[in-house]
Nucleic acid binder design. Structure first.
Lengths: 236, 236
DNA sequence: CCATGGAGACTAACATGTTAGTTGACATAG
DNA sequence: CTATGTCAACTAACATGTTAGTCTCCATGG
């Protein structure tokens, strides 16, 4: 009643989103799960969610079905729905899948990029430099996301971004717990720069190596986290 | 009325599946779409589907929502649902995504495989030889699928297979139209054998090269198809 | 002959009612 | 004190009712 249930009042209002009701409910719930406003293991009750968002059970059910499909919640048939625990298995798999997609993307972009595309990547890179210099961590986080999003966009494959986001949702959630450290941000900058350099000289293999090196930094940091916050993880 | 609508009577009975009603309806519809019993452009009416399958609109709606999410149908809000056209864009993207996942998988398997896993792969390979020798095309198609499924399973990442299937659904549908030719099957055998050889000597790079070569054979054949059956495709 | 607009039929999306299965607390037996 | 069976409360899943938006088609006006 007190701690085992989610706190539906922490959901953001769905008026800020667009699309069908079901989709807006989905976004609100996903945000709460990814940002850890809802903790792993907590029970999702449709009643309070409907009440808070001012909708009926239909769109809420559809939203929960999608979240279950993405592995963010566990639906127990005829019984209940719970926020999924983080599991190192899932995170490892998500990292693997994400890396597969990122490596293929960066190789393709390194081969096919236009001058204009490279200019955009380079502009983003300079923005990253600036933000780190200013110590603007949230801004840098966003620019970092955009760096990867740009690369995917420049493949010309629109679904790529969606698929990449989907497979690495659990990783995203875990990343929320990683505090930005000054040392890590400058390392990140160097790694990004190596990727950009490879793209500049149109060297797919070098781009892949640089990206692999960059992405390889994440898992060890998450593994360290699993020891600090074991209650969020599940052994299975 | 006659040709613009799907023929719901061609749906297979959902009794043959297991899981929730919604999931079984989903499987029945997906089968009909992938096997081209339902043609691109045709309108899906919930009424006849409910009637044929003996269920209410709820599970049908949920199934259609999932199909829309996977791009197999286009839902026009407040209006109707249509079987999605094949598009070379989607197929190219699906091939790219699929290849990204297969290359990452085969490299990992080449590195990490156990002796027992290799034995299973090798057994499948010998089965393929046998089936081609006997001219059993459906059997070979199935063994081919299993060959790729084995590789993905041996990564140890269970969602991989699901994701791979999802991203290449459009490709699967297009492949249904490709007639097996004796020449192509022996080529396929050689390509598979090259992959197996690389896995035997635990050479990830060679395995990737062999797999890339193998997967690269598909797109040209589909592109030829688009000229033969233009009514199934859409320019967008 | 073409444009336009409006009425009706149809639909997805949403709301609500119903069913059947699971869980957990509690009482009772060992 | 532990094991077990029962029962009530709760839930997901499904069925059905309602709403509001879209499309088609035909009539009317230019």
């Amino acid at each position: 009643m007190t701690n085992t249930d989610i706190d539906a009042t922490r959901l953001q209002d769905i008026g800020s989103f667009e699309g069908s009701l079901a989709h807006r409910v989905y976004l609100a719930l996903q945000d709460a799960i990814l940002s850890l406003k809802f903790l792993p293991g907590q029970v999702v009750r449709k009643g309070p969610v409907c009440e808070k968002l001012g909708v009926s059970r239909s769109p809420v059910s559809e939203a929960i079905a999608r979240l279950a499909n993405e592995g963010l919640v566990d639906v127990i048939p005829q019984s209940g729905t719970r926020i999924a625990h983080l599991s190192m298995e899932d995170i490892r798999e998500g990292t693997f899948l994400r890396q597969a997609l990122e490596l293929a993307s960066v190789a393709k972009v390194a081969e096919d990029r236009t001058e204009d595309q490279f200019a955009q990547i380079n502009r983003n890179m300079r923005l990253q430099d600036l933000l780190v210099e200013d110590g603007d961590f949230p801004g840098f986080y966003q620019a970092d996301e955009e760096f990867h999003a740009l690369l995917m966009a420049f493949t010309g494959y629109p679904r790529l971004k969606t698929v990449a986001r989907m497979v690495s949702l659990q990783v995203t959630r875990a990343r929320m717990l990683l505090l930005p450290t000054p040392g890590r941000t400058t390392e990140t900058l160097d790694e990004h720069r190596a990727v950009v350099d490879a793209i500049r000289i149109r060297d797919p293999d070098a781009a892949q190596r640089a990206m692999r090196l960059h992405l390889g930094q994440l898992m060890p940091r998450i593994e360290a986290l699993a020891e600090t916050r074991p209650e969020l993880f599940q052994s299975r």
